[in-house]
Amino acid sequence: MATDESGGYSESRPAALFVTTHWSEVLAAGRGDTTRAGDALARLCQTYWYPLYAYARRRGCSPHDAQDLTQEFFARLLAGNWVAKADRQRGRFRSFLLSAMKHFMANEWNKASAQKRGGGQPILSLNDDSAEHRYRLEPAERATPESLFERGWAVTLLEGVLARLDEEYRRTGKQTWMEAMRPALTTDRESMDYAGMAQTLGITETAARVAAHRLRQRYRQLIRAEVAGTVASPEEVEAEMRHLFRVLTNG
């Protein structure tokens, strides 16, 4: 292979940089008592705590309470065997998390909060300021707590994927490329200004197309891998993505 560094991510980059967390692994572990499944769950929680925070806020919790609640919820989730109890269904992590949270808020939160206050190490490094700041940006008017949770989920997922994509391009010194080509991730193929992109990057129009194509390709790989980490089986990826698309368009 030619060592052509004119665009895209490099082939020599370590392939395993994308550490996928596997909901299916957690499920497979059944009782959730293996270290690996525990780690996987912890990683999922670290990524997706914000949608729960937003849910709690919309349900009427104060910022402080919402933070406490989220912390406590995750502490219980990671320590206990809720996963095993989660009807042992091969569900999606997103649905599981929301139903577990609902259950927690309805049945255990008051008790838990009473016990929790004044002691214990936080499970997650929640930055309350940034969470609250983000919450205030949420579209406020019509959103139900559930729709806010789902929208927050989808945006969190996209953020993670874009951050990884950025990281890959940055690592190969292609940050300028990423900046110039980012519109390719949301723009209809027909309306892409490849000529303008080519001019910005000082490459041919065809090279710009190739680069944009590769960017989209890599983006799709990453997002599919990320979604795959939150569903029980690969067959569900497509349906989950469609669901998230609906969530985002209706939101």
Partner: peptide
């Protein structure tokens, strides 16, 4: 959003429209 012309939410990841991002992913 330059693409779908819907208002771009403040939490749009990297300033990109989340719905269009998901559409391209699909």
């Amino acid at each position: 959003c330059q693409n779908c012309q819907a208002p771009l939410a403040d939490d749009a990841p990297h300033g990109l429209c989340p719905a269009c991002l998901m559409k391209v992913a699909l």
